[in-house]
């Protein structure tokens, strides 16, 4: 795992990384670890013992799922570079919900998107109570309204027909 041949397009994102913010946080942590390890390496030359900094669960999952190691400075730099590219190029799906989204649901949605749509898809979460229920999904070029509000809008004609039927029955 010393050599880093994996490009950003081959990275597997862990389920804990849902949004672009999570990815940025992962990148920051990685940069911090790189700095820590670089400093430790320098200090090790003067006889100070080197300790591996404690990693977060997200970073740990990312390294395991992508079979990456952080011991070599070049590898860390390469991972950081690829992650920076991924951060800028990863496809983002805007999902607006009627209620505040919990972490667990977002992780399930991210898993589905990465499995069915794009392996590195990220989610940008929004909140709009007037949707009542469902999701308002916006991809880079399209909008998909799967909310209950849109569903009711689509049933106007049905309601009008029902009312006309009732009116006809009342006149008779």
């Amino acid at each position: 795992m010393s050599e880093v041949n994996t490009t950003h397009s081959e990275f597997v994102l862990p389920s804990s990384v849902v949004s672009k913010v999570d990815l940025a946080r992962l990148l920051n942590e990685l940069e911090w670890v790189d700095n820590e390890l670089t400093a430790a390496t320098i200090r090790a030359k003067s006889g100070v013992q080197v300790h591996m900094p404690t990693l977060s669960q997200g970073l740990n999952d990312f390294l395991i799922q992508n079979k990456l190691g952080l011991t070599e400075s070049r590898a860390r730099s390469a991972i950081i570079a690829q992650l920076r590219v991924l951060k800028n190029k990863a496809p983002v799906v805007h999902m607006t919900f009627a209620v505040s989204a919990d972490r667990e649901s977002l992780q399930k949605l991210a898993e589905w998107l990465r499995k069915e749509v794009h392996p590195q898809a990220l989610i940008m979460v929004g909140l709009q109570p007037s949707l009542v229920a469902g999701v308002y999904l916006r991809t880079p070029n399209h909008v998909h309204d799967y909310s209950l509000r849109a569903l009711l809008h689509g049933q106007h004609d049905l309601l009008t027909k029902e009312l006309e039927t009732l009116r006809a029955g009342a006149k008779i």
């Binding site: 919900f97 209620v99 505040s100 989204a101 919990d102 949605l109 589905w112 229920a133 469902g134």
Partner: peptide, 14 residues
Amino acid sequence: YDLKAQLPAILQQM
């Protein structure tokens, strides 16, 4: 309805 309750329907629509 919270998002957990809506999740199956959302996934189905997606």
